[in-house]
Design a binder for these strands. Sequence first.
DNA 1: TCATAGAGTTAGCCAAGACTAACAAACTGC
DNA 2: GCAGTTTGTTAGTCTTGGCTAACTCTATGA
Lengths: 123, 123
Amino acid sequence: MAYDESREMYLETILILSRKSKTVRSVDISEYMGYSKPSVSRAMGLLKDGGYIEEDYREGIVLTKKGREIAENVYDRHITLTKMLEALGVDPKTAADDACKIEHFISDTTFSAIKAHFKKFGE
Amino acid sequence: MAYDESREMYLETILILSRKSKTVRSVDISEYMGYSKPSVSRAMGLLKDGGYIEEDYREGIVLTKKGREIAENVYDRHITLTKMLEALGVDPKTAADDACKIEHFISDTTFSAIKAHFKKFGE
DNA sequence: TCATAGAGTTAGCCAAGACTAACAAACTGC
DNA sequence: GCAGTTTGTTAGTCTTGGCTAACTCTATGA
């Protein structure tokens, strides 16, 4: 879990799932992301070690402050980038797929610049 | 060499170096990319197996048609994306760095849409 | 001519992040 | 209350793509 992309995807997924249902379990993440249970289990272990999530027998998997900040940041990028690509005429599926890749790699500088541009030119 | 990013970076580098000097050698790629000689050596083996490059004792490493098409496509994206980010006010280094990541991941659809948008709105 | 430098390869290692197989523990329903 | 399902973990494998160490081969120059 040294590189960001994988971690960010897991955290983003936890955020999305926590908005849909009250508790988030490993198996839900597993289904949502299409990864095997052991893969998710190990990832959760690393996220817990890193202080990004906590596990509670009642609440399931919960984002810590640190984890939530990352998740919300990535999710915000995801939504914003998807909307922008759709506004440019890209079909929704491709827009979401591409946004999902771009969201992990671009710098804050670039993201802000893109956001400002689209604000100026509208949709 | 199953995923595209690494392959595309090598091919792009070979294209760039072949425009700068007459012949391209492994060690040039090694220096340019900051990778060790064995890493480049292995990558060249895989690119050769895949039909992306050929090696000639006189000409050094040469892109095949297949390799050149990918390299030129990626390089075009790189240049275009970099220019656009710079036009949005991103500093040149960040623009180049971010373009270098984005160039490998976005679909043709998205790239075309972005290009069309910027053509319309100018810089 | 022979030493040394430079280029490239071979062999083997490592980390990240997926996977399956198999097990353990807990919850559910008859 | 016990059987069977669901959930999660452990153990170990695979692939990608880096790395170092150590070798070979070629070319150069004193």
